[in-house]
Amino acid sequence: MQGDEAKGRKKLAYMVLTIVLLLVFLANISLGSVYIPFSEIIKWMVGIELENEIWRNILLKSRLPQAITALLAGAGLAAGGLQMQTLFRNPLAGPSILGISSGAGLGVAIVVLLFGAIGGKAISHLGMFASLTIVMAAFIGSVFVLLMVLFLARKLKNNAMLLIVGIMVGYASSAIVGLLQFISSKDDIQAFVIWGLGSFNNVSWDKLSIFVPLVLVGLAGSLFLIKPLNVLLLGENYAANLGLNIKRSRLSILVVTGLLTATVTAFCGPIAFLGLAVPHLSKGVFKTADHSVLVPAVIIFGAVLALVCNVIARLPGFDGALPINSITSLIGAPIVVSVILKRRRLTQ
């Protein structure tokens, strides 16, 4: 029976994906600008104290937190992207569609650019304090936009209108950021641009203790949205007839996606395309629209892709690390294009 065949295929895909996840996580730990022998890494991983203190520090303070950050950021963005694509029934929606990452950008711009311009001292010179301030600013900015979207979502009946509002909020934020850049010093602008390039390696263990629980709560929330997301596939009218409280479901979806996007953007900067591309990849591999399969799938797949991008960004030969946003875009854009081409073929 074809149904069993499809089930077998899904199981296999899950298995392969999980193995790949372990492998790329390992690659993230073992590869980097400083060469550490693989045997030492294995030793370290099974809990044997390494004699080389530098290696120990690199693994513990840099590579491991970075890998955890990438894993959770990818998972969170992908889960958010899937939810937005289903809610808006739009294949090109992503977690940033609500203007949340623009809000984060605005928050950071206000702190970095405006305070720099007024205070006369660039915040980028303030070290650790600055980095936490930036996270806070980004988080406040995105939560502010999220609250605005939620407020409008209660008023607006129509999802398409909400989508337009989200995009408009994005434009407005970009415009204000542009104005701020106009009046800011070169140093501050550079600090802002660097934030905008995205990075997985700014999250120390201190920050992870905030980052990890927030993302985990968001991911757990996604699992509780499986049923409403499935029903919403049929459109709002059918969903309402099947007993779904449309407004409440929409609000829950927005809160969960908002939390994930706001958290990831605050700590890692705006990461483009991951949240848009991963749901398409997962739908292609798992060949299903069922969210009880897709939600776990995009979480694993998102983690894999983020870790892959992170490895590429740190490939030996590149001095330091490439901006993660460029890598995700370079990988994500072809995926999105292929999706559009495939759609066009289907409709012809």
Partner: peptide
């Protein structure tokens, strides 16, 4: 309906939504 990769079985089973539990 404009959903890709949705089978007849999956579509019809959504009709059970009012009767299924939290995860459907």
């Amino acid at each position: 309906l404009q959903v890709q990769n949705l089978t007849v079985f999956e579509l019809v089973s959504l009709g059970r939504t009012p009767y299924t539990g939290y995860f459907g």
